[in-house]
């Protein structure tokens, strides 16, 4: 069983890809029945970050926050996902509430959840190219030109 690292009064787990599903299952059976949040982070521009020893930093990270109604506490799971192989197992079978969240991460960050029932884009149009929350995707700003107004004030 994995040890949680305590960060600002909250337990944080750093599982490897193989430990991920087992860890989530053990959390689920120890009363963390409510999955609050699942999101992804692209650490392309921030390669050095505080990670416990033995955890290899990868470009992507999946962050899962689970809540226990009994102990009224939250735990966080941070999973490193390789850039070259952005695949990870889905949590749909365990926490069906992550369905939309995983689709959102797929849509905006391009991570593939194996076993997800319906992995399609959720927020962007169907034929969109790229994944906007990636750091190498520009914000898409269109320069605004301010012109002198000819109107009489």
């Amino acid at each position: 069983m994995l040890e949680a690292v305590i960060r600002d009064a909250q337990g944080v787990f750093f599982p490897t890809m193989d430990q991920y599903v087992d860890l989530m299952e053990s959390l689920w059976s120890s009363d963390y029945k409510f999955c609050s949040d699942l999101c992804g982070v692209d650490y392309l521009e921030m390669p050095s970050r505080k990670l416990p020893e033995g955890v290899k930093a990868e470009r992507f990270e999946i962050v899962v926050n689970v809540t226990s109604f009994e102990t009224r506490s939250r735990l966080r799971v941070r999973l490193q996902v390789q850039e070259s192989n952005p695949h990870l197992p889905t949590l749909y079978g365990l926490y069906p509430g992550t369905e939309a969240m995983e689709r959102e991460v797929y849509d905006l960050l391009g991570m593939v959840f194996d076993g997800h029932p319906d992995l399609s884009r959720i927020l962007l149009p169907e034929e969109w190219e790229g994944h906007p929350l990636r750091k190498d995707y520009s914000v898409g700003r269109i320069p605004v030109q301010f012109k002198a107004s000819t109107a009489i004030r």
């Binding site: 962007l124 906007p132 995707y137 520009s138 914000v139 898409g140 700003r141 269109i142 605004v144």
Partner: peptide, 10 residues
């Protein structure tokens, strides 16, 4: 009218 403060891809 102009995209407002959301001058982005979406």
């Amino acid at each position: 009218s102009s995209g407002g403060m959301f001058n982005n891809y979406a």
